[in-house]
Design a protein around this nucleic acid. Structure first.
Length: 465
RNA sequence: GCCCCCAUCGUCUAGUGGACCAGGAUACUGGCCUCUCACGCCAGAGACACGGGUUCGAAUCCCGUUGGGGGCGCCA
């Protein structure tokens, strides 16, 4: 039976950003859709730039997103022996050779060739020198001088590269570490990867890798080059725009599955549908529906998707995701029921978990503080008597929203003051702010005891005006 | 400089030769709802890059131009 095997191979030279996360997501969705395997491997052969803390943060980001892997994480730095074996084979079969050109010399040659209007690639100086291994010598693969190299891309069809576009590139550096091109191929072979789904910035590399497969006598996997994610200005993602770590989105209060929903829709569409649960994505994802044009990251749309999921997720689920944002409150003092009812009242009024936590504030503190302007505007001498009225009536009132509503409408009508003014005053008394969830919902959730206490404080405040 | 990829509203997209004077989402504008703020609902404005073909017919197929992106490392 044929089993799909995909992989996500980040290099730990930075945090996981949106582009990388989307690549991981597409590979993961594809594997899950076909009940295949998803492998994680770190491409850390660049010893200069690879940092263990990036490994940690990438792992954490993937876990947060829920992109679980079936194998790995592998580290290329721990597989050096393997690359040497494969390289040795190529050397013995006369498909690779040592090159003694120094970096400086190559740099110079490249400059000259560019000036002459030639291709910048290596000029094959050492190809026939028959050099053995030695200090400062890198191993190059012999590439064909003429002919075409054909890349079959699952999304774009057949792409043809001319052999003279490809030089004898290095597969083993002079320090014996493998280059990217070589390590990926060896890894993808040994890990039995069936589908390579990656950014189309790798498209130009693919013929090189195909040549390695050929030299090794192995059939290449299927390739699918997906369009890249661009910043909002259309330039390549960099620190400036969306290249922030996905963990930053966690800090800002995005739901992981909202981010996934957004990322999936970036370059992929399914009819007119906009919102997908992760489960639906696994069911519906297919490579054929991927767009070929690069997609720009749009923070407004991301926020809208997050807003949608906050509004449409069960409050129990939201509570879980909210916990880290509620660290400053003694939420253990409240029942889960209370917290969930409170969340119910703010779900459709917030865009992020962070905002949610802020809006939850008045539910979670013993004593509220008044916003200065709101208190001045609404907690007036004139409104005092009506607050007192409510305070006195409260103990006999039902807290059902319907009944509260008719109580207040009645009170407003019989006393000739506007419901709006009354409502705003009580709102400030109960929440400290002039903006909050519906008044009747709040009263019901807070309960008589808290409401009484806060009204008392408001009456006190008015008395001292 | 050379090579490769791509091209529908500002953005993400639907659209695979006729059902498209181009649909949805988001953002924007106006209105409704209303105890505040939101949600929601209704309405409006907004795109097939350009030029040639092919065809009875093209957003859809072909070519060119332009524009955007990527690659040409002892980075990945």
């Amino acid at each position: 039976m044929f089993q799909v095997v995909t992989r996500f191979p980040p290099s730990p030279t930075g945090h996981l950003h949106l582009g990388g996360a989307r690549t991981a997501l597409f590979n993961w969705l594809f594997a899950r859709h076909y009940q295949g395997k998803f492998i994680l491997r770190f491409e850390d052969t660049d010893q200069e730039r690879s940092k263990p803390e990036y490994v940690t943060s990438i792992l954490e980001a993937l876990k947060w997103l829920g992109l679980d892997w079936d194998e790995g994480p592998y580290f290329q730095s721990q597989r050096l022996e393997l690359y040497h074996q494969f390289a040795q084979r190529l050397l013995e079969e006369g498909k690779a050779y040592y090159c003694e050109c120094s970096k400086e010399l190559l740099e110079e040659k490249k400059k000259k060739r560019l000036e002459l209007g030639l291709k910048p690639g290596y000029d094959k100086t050492c190809r026939d020198k028959n050099l053995g291994p030695g200090e400062g010598r890198a191993l190059r693969i012999i590439t064909p001088d003429i002919g075409d190299i054909v890349v079959e891309d699952l999304l774009r069809g057949r792409i043809i590269f001319s052999a003279d576009e490809i030089d004898d590139f290095i597969i083993l550096r002079s320090d014996k570490t493998p280059t990217y091109q070589f390590a990926v191929v060896v890894d993808d072979i040994t890990m039995k990867i069936t589908h390579v789904i990656r950014g189309d910035d790798h498209l130009s590399n693919t013929p090189k890798q195909i040549l390695i497969y050929k030299a090794l006598g192995v059939n290449p996997p299927f390739f699918a080059h997906i369009p890249m994610v661009l910043g909002s200005d259309g330039a390549r993602l960099s620190k400036r725009h969306g290249a922030r770590s996905v963990l930053e989105y966690r800090e800002e209060g995005y739901l992981p599955y909202a981010l996934i929903n957004y990322l999936a829709r970036l370059g992929w569409g399914y009819g007119d549908e906009e919102y997908f649960s992760v489960k639906e994505l696994i069911e519906k994802f297919s490579l054929e529906r991927i767009n070929l044009a690069p997609a720009r990251f749009d923070s407004d749309k991301l926020l809208a998707v997050n807003t949608y999921w906050i509004k449409n997720s069960p409050s129990e689920v939201l509570l879980e995701h909210l916990l880290p944002f509620l660290k400053d409150y003694s939420i253990f003092r409240f029942s889960k029921e209370y917290l969930i009812l409170a969340i119910e009242t703010i779900k459709s009024r917030t865009k992020t978990l962070k905002e949610m936590a802020e809006m939850l504030h008045f539910y979670l503190v013993e004593e509220i503080d008044y916003e200065e302007n709101s208190a001045r505007k609404y907690l007036t001498k004139a409104i005092g008597p009506y607050l007192e009225r409510f305070f006195l009536d409260l103990k006999d009132l039902s807290l059902e929203e319907q009944e509260l509503e008719s109580y207040f409408k009645n009170l407003a009508q019989t006393s000739g003051i506007k419901l709006k003014d009354l409502a705003q005053a009580i709102r400030v008394a109960l929440t400290g702010k002039s903006v909050s969830p519906g008044l009747f919902e709040i009263i019901k959730v807070l309960g008589k005891e808290r409401v009484e206490k806060r009204l008392k404080k408001a009456l006190e405040f008015i008395k001292n005006l």
